[in-house]
Design a binder for these strands. Structure first.
Lengths: 336, 336
DNA sequence: TTGAAAGCGCTAACAC
DNA sequence: GTGTTAGCGCTTTCAA
């Protein structure tokens, strides 16, 4: 139930320590000049009383609230969550707290949240989403606070953080090639997604003429369908498949098993997203590209902190590297 | 980039409207007495200037920050996310913002976040987790602000919100029974989980002697294993399976298909969690129990709001109903 | 009907 | 060394 511990003010500490409020303030902040004894006495009293300065009052003076807002439209998503965790992680040590604002895709809700944050004098705003080629339905230009965009589309002159899809895809492809696979196919999501295009581009770059790309949905079902198509053709069948996400990969692997094709001995499969719970549940466990979204979140936190401290940052898109997480779906190094 | 729109203060409005700060304040807050003309003029000026009151300054006076903290240890989880969304949704209309504090399972981190929130004078704290039978590693007793626990274990005298596992399980079982299934088995997670025990208890309650429970892991693999065990036995095989979560159900359905058993015509399967992305991907799509976590989050938001406004609430555990989401894995009403 | 003044909890000049 | 004073942006008596 509601425990009503009275809050201790600086004046309480000052009174009890027999000094003025100003002296108490200086004592605790390590500023001003006074005898070591006085300082220590004040500190001791503050500890005894469990004094914690009121951040509101401080903020009113310093014009810094040590608070940032995090806007997201990805309520249920596996993308935003690690980003948020990263942001929170990077900022907590600096005493900065994060306002979570989930705005769905509702411009009105976005406005409400934005206003609430601005009223609360956040030091900065991080905008994050579930696609790097869609904007949130809020206009964040001309705000009195800095903004960082992470894993969402942003204006050209903004500071933006995204994962390096092309590099991640390249690593996956090179891994398959390095394993001796020669007939490699890329099964991925709709061409309308920049991520799909970027990954496919990198795939073609590595594979050249040999590389074949199949666009479909981001779903298990599409994985099944794609395999059905490939296996029904009269052509040579692939010995390596790079999938646009883990769900497709899951469908692919299941479809291959249903056809008696062995993974990884007959075909190597790589996924994308490294969605732990899915990647670990495929049989065999899925080798997959991890976008390192938590690291991306941490970087977003660092950047917004720098900006809120008045530092200048070069605008533009910063791509953060992905990394390949090797499990058993490719054979080779960790063949089972 | 950093756009540096100067913030408008009340004094700016007052000056421009030709009144005192006090009058301006009253005009905008609808308090005090003055001619309608004065009030309107002030309001018009405030609108023109885009004045928004500084919430810090207000908070300093009113002792309410319109801010609550949300503690969670479920960084990647599908449980906490809907809860958070619900909390945020319930509170945004009241002008309350939510601090997101992801503390993993680290007591030190919990302490740091808690202190940060308290310093920032949150009006209340919501504690949430991924299991209803584990506590977060932070002591929230004796705080100067109210606390609500949602989907996590709590002290006896706390206000706690959990989903009604037993009721959800009961609905699932009755659904299977209503479909004419007579030999029903419950395949679920470890008995060490209260949720597993509660669901199994409800299952036995509905099925009586006929009900058989198999405990294992919360994984697809366990779903496969359980089916292997059941189908290798010399006993009559089940025609209805109630699974402890959707992952197990996924494993069960896949295992059944591998054995040529038809779902739902031969066997009806129900899952638990209604984890959209999984439930929709099973073939056929999975009928599953939804814990309505977003609604739970909303309720948590309402409760913390009530408490922070000084209302008294009966301590104890409040169970919120689950609901069955019918897809195609059971046949009957929506048979395919 | 309006405004001057005090004060929320704290920090920072500037006296003493 | 320490205290007095002013002020962050706002609300709220209380006096005019």
């Amino acid at each position: 139930m509601v425990a009503v511990g009275e809050r201790i003010r600086l004046s309480d500490v000052a009174l009890r320590a027999g000094v003025s409020v100003a002296t108490a303030s200086k004592a605790l902040n390590g500023t001003g000049r006074m005898t070591p004894e006085t300082r220590q006495r004040v500190q001791r009293v503050a500890d005894e009383l469990g004094f914690r300065p009121n951040a509101m009052a401080r903020a009113l003076i310093s014009r810094r609230t040590f608070t940032v807002g995090l806007l997201t439209n990805d309520t249920y998503g596996r993308f935003t969550l690690p980003v948020m965790a990263g942001v929170s992680e990077a900022l907590v040590d600096e005493g900065v707290s994060v306002f979570l604002c989930s705005i769905e895709d509702d411009p009105a809700l976005g406005r409400v949240h934005l206003d609430a944050m601005l009223d609360k004098q956040v030091d900065g705003i991080i905008s994050t989403g579930k696609r790097i080629d869609k904007r949130l339905p809020v206009d964040l230009s001309g705000l009195p606070v800095p903004v960082v965009y992470a894993f969402t589309q942003a204006p050209d002159d903004a500071v933006t953080l995204v994962s390096d899809d092309a590099q991640g895809a390249r690593e996956a492809c090179q891994w398959l090639v390095g394993l001796g696979r020669t007939n490699i196919v890329h099964i991925t999501g709709p061409e309308t997604f920049v991520s799909a295009r970027d990954r496919a581009g990198a795939f073609r770059e590595v594979l050249g003429e040999r590389g074949r790309v199949l666009h479909g949905e981001w779903s298990e079902t599409w994985g099944h369908q794609a395999i059905a198509r490939l296996w029904d053709e009269k052509r040579a069948r692939p010995d390596g498949i790079f999938c646009g996400n883990d769900q497709i990969a899951r469908g692919v692997i299941d479809a291959l098993r249903e056809r008696g094709v062995q993974v990884p001995s007959d075909v190597s499969v790589v996924g994308f997203d490294n969605w732990e719970i899915l990647a670990a549940a495929t049989r065999p466990p899925l080798t997959s590209v991890d976008m390192n979204l938590k690291a991306l979140g941490r970087e977003a936190g660092r950047l917004i902190l720098a900006l809120s401290e008045g530092k200048q940052l070069e605008p533009g898109i910063r791509k953060l590297p992905c990394s390949l997480v090797v499990r058993q779906s490719c054979g080779g190094l960790t063949a089972d």
